[in-house]
Write a protein that binds this DNA or RNA. Structure first.
Length: 508
RNA sequence: GGUCCCUUCGUCUAGUGGUUAGGACGCCAGGUUUUCAUCCUGGAAACAGGAGUUCGAUUCUCCUAGGGACUACCA
């Protein structure tokens, strides 16, 4: 690494919704870039024409935007090293593939996918494995095993070919991973990867990624651990191109594992355990819907925070970080080596923390759509008071309703268990009396009301607990909710008296 | 199978050649509360195993075991 500025890229493939692991990769790239005053680049790697999914790119953009990961250079934003979509860089790659062929670092191969598949099957039947590598390439249908004339003939006839990297023999490739340290691979265990296919005139990931990272002056490649095995190939390619001097630094992030720890987190796990695996809800072209964090009620800042703590920690006991704090505190050195299991419970906890930090006004606004859905129209000031009272018992805005519905509508039914426990013989008559007392009570505030009620129950020889619980039952339909007399105050004289008067029907 | 990576409470993790191995989530108990939740206090809970180095290893080295990733004309 020279003194060049930090430039990192997030390079997803538009083959479906952005997975939460990909989101974390994007986040770490973003944090690293911002911390160093560098650039966060979004490059769309759509070199697999067969796996292209319409809408996936828009989904990626929308996800990054929702999370507040602002892209400095990309398809939408433009930039000096564009285009940022690989399918629009087609003509660039062929040139570099040819360069490698000319230098003897790559060769043409005419084996058809069917040929290779057949050889794999044969090998498998013999309990061996087939690899297109230094042991087998001279016996296969490629420019290494044919004469110059034969090659020319194949090319002239437009026989489809691929260009494969010619992995040299017996070299110990040393590479440094910023998270793991030095890793060594021997080239004898590596195969000859396809770099380019004539069929669709597109490169594979390996070629496109090296060429683009070089051309876009990427300083650090921060990607998932699943790429670690191809690191030696990439290092060798930088050598083949003669770009070793400016090769980016590499960091391979540990994987996000299933809650049970067995394997990479996948969409299925989310469906099974009931938590989202995607940032935004996604509907596939076939109509299949996958849950999203946003739709499940998660705040983007909570998602960023929980993702940041999955595989990284600040070394302090701080767990809640704003984006600015993350940018300041982040470092690749403190990223863990081992995979982290996703914990849905802790994810909920993070969201709760952020929800509690929100102002009543903000929460009231977020609650509004849910009320509309219930057909409830409420005064904004009233709403804020309700939210203030119940917010400390929810993890999500969507849970506000079940804890506050009685502020908007009289209970339609009463919890049978609570009725049995609290609706004693002497209560109904007293409730009627209480209704009368409240009806003519001049000051309507929690403290005075509590005092008034206490006086009355004392004069009738009833305990506070018995009355309070019965009153709560009448007002809310159950045994839950915030401070009783705060409920009474907020509900207002008219409504409280009405519910009290109706309470007799409970006896049925 | 081959290559590579990884291994501290159930989970996310801190940590050091000598610590009562710390925190968080979750769980349990007690307290606060008229209810529920919050909140507060407390508790159970970990260095995968075996060698070696060392006066002393959770920490350093090696081996074993376990887990994971990769092994496509996908990324």
């Amino acid at each position: 690494m020279s003194s060049e500025s930090v430039r990192v890229r997030f390079a997803p493939s538009p083959t479906g919704p952005l997975h939460i692991g990909g989101v974390r990769t994007a986040l770490f790239n973003y944090l690293f870039a911002k911390q160093h005053g560098g650039s966060f680049i979004l490059r769309i790697e759509d070199t697999d024409s067969s796996r292209f999914v319409p809408g996936a790119e828009a989904y990626i953009n929308a996800s990054l935007q929702w999370l507040g990961l602002k892209v400095d250079e990309g398809v939408e934003e433009g930039g000096p090293y564009g285009p940022y979509k690989q399918s629009e860089r087609k003509e660039i790659y062929k040139k570099y593939a040819d360069m490698l062929v000319d230098r003897g670092w790559a060769y043409y191969a005419f084996d058809t996918p069917e040929d290779l598949e057949a050889m794999r099957t044969v090998a498998e039947n013999e309990k061996k494995s087939f690899a297109y590598d230094l042991h087998s390439r001279n016996d296969l249908n490629n420019s290494l095993s044919m004469s110059a004339d034969e090659l020319k003939e194949c090319l002239d006839k437009n026989i489809p070919y691929v260009i494969r990297f010619k992995m040299p023999e017996n070299i110990d490739v040393e590479a440094t991973d910023l998270i793991r340290g030095k890793v060594v691979f021997n080239t004898n265990t590596l195969d000859d990867k396809v770099l380019y296919k004539s069929a669709d005139e597109l490169p594979t990931y390996h070629l496109a990624n090296i060429v683009d990272d070089h051309l876009m002056k990427i300083s650090h490649v921060i990607r998932g651990e699943e790429w670690l095995p191809s690191l030696p190939l990439h290092v060798m390619m930088y050598r083949a191109f003669g770009w070793s001097e400016t090769m980016p630094a590499f960091a391979h992030l540990p994987l996000i594992l299933k809650p049970n720890g067995k394997g990479k987190l996948s969409k299925r796990d989310g469906d099974k355990e009931g938590f989202p695996v995607f940032p935004l809800e996604y509907t596939s072209p076939s109509g299949e819907v996958s849950a999203g964090y946003r739709e499940s009620g998660y705040f983007p800042e909570a998602v960023n925070n929980l993702l940041a703590l999955l595989g990284w920690n600040s070394g302090t006991e701080q767990e809640l970080f704003t984006m600015d704090e993350l940018i300041k505190a982040f470092s690749l050195e403190r990223v863990n080596k081992s995979g982290a299991r996703f914990d849905p419970d802790k994810a909920r906890w993070f969201n709760q923390q952020y929800l509690q930090q929100k102002s009543d006004s903000e929460l009231a606004a977020l609650f509004m759509p849910f009320l509309k859905q219930k057909g409830v129209e409420a005064d904004r000031a009233y709403l804020e008071r309700v939210v203030a009272m119940v917010k400390d018992r929810v993890h999500f805005v969507s849970e506000l309703w079940e804890h506050s519905f009685f502020f908007f509508t009289a209970p339609q039914e009463y919890d049978a268990k609570v009725v049995q426990k609290r609706w004693k013989d002497e209560i109904p008559a007293f409730m009627e009396e209480l209704a009368g007392a409240f009806e003519s009570f001049p000051t309507w505030d929690a403290a005075s009301l509590k005092e008034k009620a206490s006086e009355l129950m004392q004069s009738r020889g009833l305990s506070f607990g018995a009355v309070a619980n019965a009153l709560r039952l009448v007002l809310t339909g159950g045994a839950f909710g915030p401070d009783l007399f705060m409920i009474v105050e907020l509900l207002g004289q008219k409504e409280v008296v009405r519910r009290l008067s109706k309470a007799k029907s409970l006896l049925d």
